[in-house]
């Protein structure tokens, strides 16, 4: 597998560290159902073959955090985004809908 880093260009996965599902977000600790939400956040995963949004960290490169969309049935990499941009967009959406 090779990941096209937005900063560095295409590199082998030996330069990257995997950090799992990029779609989960940390629950609100003060929520009355916080325990169940944290269990789901920490453990429960869809884990279905096909496109999977996941975090990778360019540990041996520019140190950028990435959100990679990868088909976990074939290892084909479908898109690479900066995790910072993804998080900023998510926060903006959350504010917009609030």
């Amino acid at each position: 597998m090779r990941i096209n880093c937005p900063c560095c260009g295409e590199r082998g996965i030996d330069e990257f560290s995997y950090y799992g599902d990029a779609t989960v977000t940390r629950p609100d600790l003060t929520s009355p159902t916080a325990m169940a939400e944290f269990v789901a956040y920490a453990f429960e995963r869809a884990n279905i073959p096909g496109p999977h949004r996941e975090l990778w960290y360019h540990a041996a490169g520019c140190h950028l955090w990435l959100v990679v969309t990868r088909n976990i049935a074939t290892h084909e990499i479908l898109s690479v985004e900066s995790a910072r941009d993804v998080a900023l967009a998510r926060n903006a959406n959350a504010k917009g809908s609030a």
């Binding site: 560095c8 590199r11 330069e15 490169g61």
Partner: peptide, 10 residues
């Protein structure tokens, strides 16, 4: 310029 590793050395 490339930030990478050579034989596991950053």
């Amino acid at each position: 310029v490339a930030i990478t590793h050579a034989s596991h050395i950053g």
